[in-house]
Design a protein around this nucleic acid. Structure first.
Lengths: 169, 169
DNA sequence: ATACATGCAAACATTTTGCTTTGGC
DNA sequence: GCCAAAGCAAAATGTTTGCATGTAT
């Protein structure tokens, strides 16, 4: 699994990405999100706060299984985690990725952050990709022409990471 | 589930898509693919031909479950279908789509055909989208700058289809 | 004849569901 | 106190594996 990195396109370059967010920053974000959710009828529960905190601290796609075994969620019930993720996705606070093989990945939505990924087909490692595209425009065009609503995109790149290259034909 | 359609962007418009390929055309395609696979060491088995035929006839992403219950594959074993799909993906003949509603989707690769989809979050229905993007260029740029190899993209749009709009908030 | 592909059955992992109990408001 | 949310346990679903059998080469 490669070191976490962000690949920035135009101009092309690769760099390490911070894989964690400062605790204070994360706490503020969680607070803001919970306030938003409360206005939608959510209750401020321990499970909700723990889940959001985990997702805010490491801002990247995580699996329900990873969440179930992580510290702030301790050994919280998996059903709770699944139900929370569902509700959060519906509330537009969390984004679901279909990236990988057997399990979905979920990511806290932070406006203005990059949301495209590069996934290694061999080891499953992920890198972030900053691509200068205009798919938001396309989303609006799709909505305008088709009767579809709430159109969002998921753009993923797949390939073989540098570390796996020697192991793959 | 909405009627099968293709949404063409720039200019935006929606149209019915042919959801099946003429039998003769499909047969020729299957023949070509099998020949290609044989050069890679594959054997010409009934299961392989049946699977490819099904995927060629309806050129769109299908699930292993759908394949297992379809006519030409009759009640062929699911393990066989999974193993075949794996091998075909590795051989570059089939493309795997991310998880939509718990299961992966697989699509026969036909050069020059559109490969982007619009998926309804409510009913799971899929429409094809013709988007005029240049992600192939981005793929090459990623490879150039990062040490990653064999980079491909998957672009999916999600939204609520016209038929489901009344049922969704 | 040999090696690869298939069928069968069981294991495995992930996700969902029904129902009871807890805790936020 | 009321009702949404969490906990618990079990089921449903999708995927993978081991091994015996069949079949393309």
């Amino acid at each position: 699994m490669p070191a976490r990195q962000t690949i920035k396109i135009r101009p092309s370059r690769v760099r390490e990405a911070k894989c964690s967010v400062p605790a204070r920053e994360a706490a503020q974000l969680v607070e803001r999100v919970i306030e938003h959710l409360r206005s939608q009828g959510f209750r401020r529960t321990e499970a909700l706060a723990a889940l959001l905190t985990h997702m805010a601290l490491r801002h990247r796609p995580v699996t329900p299984g990873e969440l179930a075994h992580s510290r702030p969620l301790a050994e919280r019930d998996q059903a709770t985690i699944y139900r929370l993720l569902m509700k959060l996705e519906e509330a537009g606070v969390v984004r679901r990725h279909g990236l990988h093989r057997r399990t979905s990945h979920f990511e806290l939505i932070i406006p203005g952050h990059c949301h495209d990924y590069l996934v290694c087909k061999s080891c499953g490692g992920m890198a972030q990709v900053d691509v200068d595209h205009s798919l938001e425009t396309v989303e609006r065009q799709i909505e305008a022409g088709s009767g579809w609503r709430r159109v969002q995109h998921e753009l993923d790149f797949f390939g073989v990471c540098p570390e796996c290259t020697p192991n793959v034909v």
